[in-house]
């Protein structure tokens, strides 16, 4: 079973761009199947979450995208998460890719994502619905 990431605070700052977003990175789905990161589909995330005993898919709608006050290389993306529309902001590098339902990888600066990671990417926009995760059976 996958080990769950730590609980969220309202703002999450990933330390750097993780290596698994580089084109060609091998990703293991919950059923054991291996896929390249650029070949992942929405169904892969949904089916993996269905198999997972800990995690389930939630939808996060992009409500606002603005430049970070700390660095021009960062952006703050505000999401409305799940049916309760909980507000979560994440501060990420502008090239950080999010997976948009039915669309694929998207970032605030897709040109930079493609340049740095070679990952095919579209522009993340307000209204896009991204894949996020939540824990199952939380009380």
């Amino acid at each position: 079973a996958p080990s769950a990431p730590p609980p969220p605070s309202n703002t999450v700052v990933p330390p750097s761009l993780p290596p698994y977003f580089i084109k060609g990175s091998i990703i293991q789905l919950a059923d054991g199947e291996l896929k390249r990161v650029e070949d992942l589909k929405t169904e892969d995330f949904i089916q993996s979450a269905e198999i997972s005993s800990e995690l389930k898919i939630d939808s996060s709608t992009v409500e606002r995208i603005e430049g970070s006050h700390t660095s021009p290389n960062f952006a703050v993306v505000q999401f409305s998460v799940g049916e309760h529309r909980a507000q979560v902001s994440v501060e990420v590098l502008v090239e950080y890719p999010f997976f948009v339902f039915g669309q694929g990888w998207s970032s605030c600066c897709p040109d930079r994502t493609t340049q740095l990671l070679e990952l095919p990417c579209t522009k993340l926009s307000v209204g896009d619905v991204c894949i996020s995760l939540t824990l199952k059976n939380l009380r």
């Binding site: 996958p2 769950a4 990431p5 609980p7 969220p8 999450v12 990933p14 993780p18 290596p19 698994y20 977003f21 990175s25 091998i26 990703i27 293991q28 789905l29 919950a30 291996l34 990161v37 992942l40 892969d44 995330f45 993996s48 997972s52 995690l55 939630d58 996060s60 998460v81 799940g82 309760h84 909980a86 979560v88 994440v90 990420v92 950080y96 999010f98 997976f99 894949i131 996020s132 995760l133 939540t134 824990l135 939380l138």
Partner: peptide, 25 residues
């Protein structure tokens, strides 16, 4: 003999950058 270099394999859930907030109902 040269050992084959192992290719890192990443779990699918690591690609999602954050967990949604816990719902309390």
């Amino acid at each position: 003999n040269v050992e084959p270099r192992s290719v890192p394999v990443f779990p699918w859930h690591s690609l999602v950058p954050f967990l949604a907030p816990t719902q309390s109902d």
